[in-house]
Design a protein around this nucleic acid. Structure first.
Length: 541
RNA sequence: GCCCCUGUAGCACAAUGGAUCGUGCAGGGCUCUUCUAAGGCCUUGAUGUAGGUUCGAUUCCUACCGGGGGCACCA
């Protein structure tokens, strides 16, 4: 039970059932360690003044604590609050007791790497799909953004007690691969180029490197496209896994896992059986309008060929049949138009589905916009970003923002700023913590008395540590990552402040031992935090 | 034209309908005899415009003015 849950439970016990109690952590300590606006809600229900309600609640909270206090003290525990105050116009501010805070440290020491992790009895099986870039070239920054987001989101959902599969869906067949193959042939001047061909430098490079293969199969562009796609996917996997430390459990092949396993036909059969399709102009359409889409969508083209959309439907059916409770799909902004139709499909299959659309990254250079285009080959690749600014800096930089923010990105500035990236500030805090324990040579004992942790700086650090499970829980609920990066900065700030203001080595024994516990707990939380964010936990810098 | 996202300080970003709008970078000033100064402390500076709802609006609603993206039998 987190501190927040303990407080919430206490308040809920004093008010009518069904009233939502929400707690906030004020930035200013004079407004309490935790604060609630529940008095406003109660006042509205009863038609009285919020201040009156807040005052009543404040005295009740203190009363409810006191009868048990004596008994609790006998067992070495004290009450939750040190102080509760009602403040105009009706806020209820609460300060935790030193004992309540200190006991949280013992929990951290006991749970170690499980601190902040929810042990769920009924795990939900969730598939998270991200990146899924076409294997027709290098990864873009937008791919990278989605990749970092998906990776961290998967970590968070796992921490919240779910079983997560991280999936990369590879479109390794169909029209795009055909076009890709043709583009390669055209890049050698064998056939004339066309508007929709891929024209990046990487296309020509691959063609040159594989010239004999291209010449041999110049009448079979699909073959060439598939071969090139395989090569690019290998490069992509290398960038993602080794370069960016983005993990995947499964690379699902559209060709092998979906088409060849019959899921495309199966999906169509389900649609037909459910009366969701009709024929028009020689094509087969799905009634996605029934589910809020702008228009109905084609499943089978005039020539009898399935659309990508139908293949994607097959993919969703596969996910459903593999017994997932939910699927989260993280798409780039260029796929926005796709959301309504794929959600329609999910609904038809009865798959709990959520689509998160990340917004564009606008590439700027010296204040001017540079257009990114994969087909024209004008873009900064994800790989370049990682090698220029480093993986931890790149990851943190992207995770700091909400997915729906439109970022302006300047590689030159990013390089300049990579040295000043907040991620180093946070990692440095861990390094300092490790250093303290190493230099002071004090053994951390879980049984050490923590009464000596009395200064505001000590208390502030404990409070930040105790927020960790709360932040993780909130993020999992909202599918948001950036609050965690913000929390990481705040925790690091509290630690650096502690480092400057208080000492461990050289203090009286009881203080040194208590602070050693505090430092150990900090190390545990930093390490758990870094694991979830996917950044490295350095031992020295 | 229709749909989605978005407008906060010089820059990049935060803010479950809550209190004096936060953080980093940049700018100005202080700070290493002490567990790593990649640190600490102080400081300058912002909600696109006009209405509305509310005890309370950066947040919700309307209009306007900007920015990005999407509107294929491509994905």
């Amino acid at each position: 039970m987190t501190l927040r849950e303990k407080i919430t439970a206490k308040i809920e016990g004093l008010i009518p059932k069904g009233t939502d109690v929400s707690l906030s952590v004020p930035e200013n300590d004079t407004q309490g360690h935790y604060s609630t606006n529940v008095a406003f809600k109660l006042a509205k229900q009863k038609g009285v003044s919020p201040m009156e309600e807040a005052e009543k609640l404040a005295s009740k909270l203190l009363e409810s604590a006191s009868p048990k206090t004596v008994a609790k003290r006998l067992f070495g525990q004290a009450e939750l609050f040190e102080r509760v105050e009602a403040v105009t116009p009706g806020f209820l501010n609460m300060w935790l007791s030193q004992n309540a805070l200190a006991s949280e440290l013992q929990i951290i020491l006991k749970e170690k790497k499980n601190y902040g992790i929810v042990k769920s009895k009924k795990k939900k099986k969730i598939q998270v799909e991200y990146i899924s870039a076409n294997p027709t070239g290098p990864l873009t920054l937008a791919n990278g953004r989605g990749g970092f987001f998906g990776d961290a989101l998967s970590n968070i959902l796992e921490a919240a007690g779910n079983a997560v599969e991280r999936e990369y869906y590879v479109n390794d067949t169909g029209n795009q691969i055909l076009t890709f193959g043709k583009s390669i042939i055209a890049s050698l001047g064998i056939i004339p180029t066309e508007e929709e061909f891929y024209k990046g430098e990487y296309v020509r490079e691959w063609a040159k490197k594989n010239k004999s293969f291209v010449l041999k199969h110049k009448n079979n562009p699909m073959e060439i496209g598939k071969r090139a796609a395989k090569d690019f996917l290998r490069g992509t996997r290398n960038t993602i896994e080794k370069g960016a430390h983005i993990k995947f459990d499964r690379y699902t092949s559209e060709d092998r896992n979906i088409h060849k396993k019959g899921y495309v036909k199966k999906a169509l059969a389900v649609f037909k059986k459910g009366g969701r399709v009709y024929e028009q102009d020689g094509a087969v359409w799905l009634r996605t309008k029934d589910f809020g889409d702008d228009k109905d969508r084609v499943l089978v083209k005039q020539g009898g060929e399935p659309t990508y959309f139908l293949a994607d439907a097959g993919h969703y059916l596969e996910t459903k049949e593999r017994k997932f409770d939910a699927k989260i799909n993280i798409l780039g902004p260029d796929h926005y138009g796709y959301v309504a139709r794929i959600q329609a499909v999910a609904k038809i299959f009865g798959l709990d589905s959520r689509v998160i659309v990340t917004q564009t990254i606008r590439l700027v250079s010296d204040g001017k916009e540079t257009k990114m285009s994969k087909r024209k080959g004008k873009f900064i690749t994800f790989e370049e970003l990682i090698s220029e600014v480093g993986r931890d800096a790149a990851r943190f930089f992207f995770l700091m923002t909400t997915p729906e923010s439109h970022m302006d990105f300047d590689l030159k500035l990013a390089k300049e700023r990579s040295q000043k990236n907040p991620v180093f500030y946070i990692q440095y805090a861990l390094v300092r913590a490790l250093s303290i324990l190493k230099k002071s040579k004090i053994k951390t004992s879980a049984k050490a008395s923590l009464d000596a942790l009395q200064t505001d700086v000590d208390t502030k650090l404990i409070r930040e540590l105790a927020r960790f499970p709360e932040v993780i829980a909130d993020s999992a609920k909202d599918y948001k990552i950036h609050p965690i990066t913000k929390y990481a900065s705040e925790l690091a700030k509290a630690f650096h402040n502690f480092y400057e203001k208080e000492r461990v080595a050289g203090e009286a024994k009881n203080i040194a031992q208590a602070r050693a516990v505090l430092v150990s707990a900090s190390i545990i939380v930093f390490q758990n935090l870094f694991k979830i964010l996917g950044i490295s936990a350095p031992k020295k810098m």
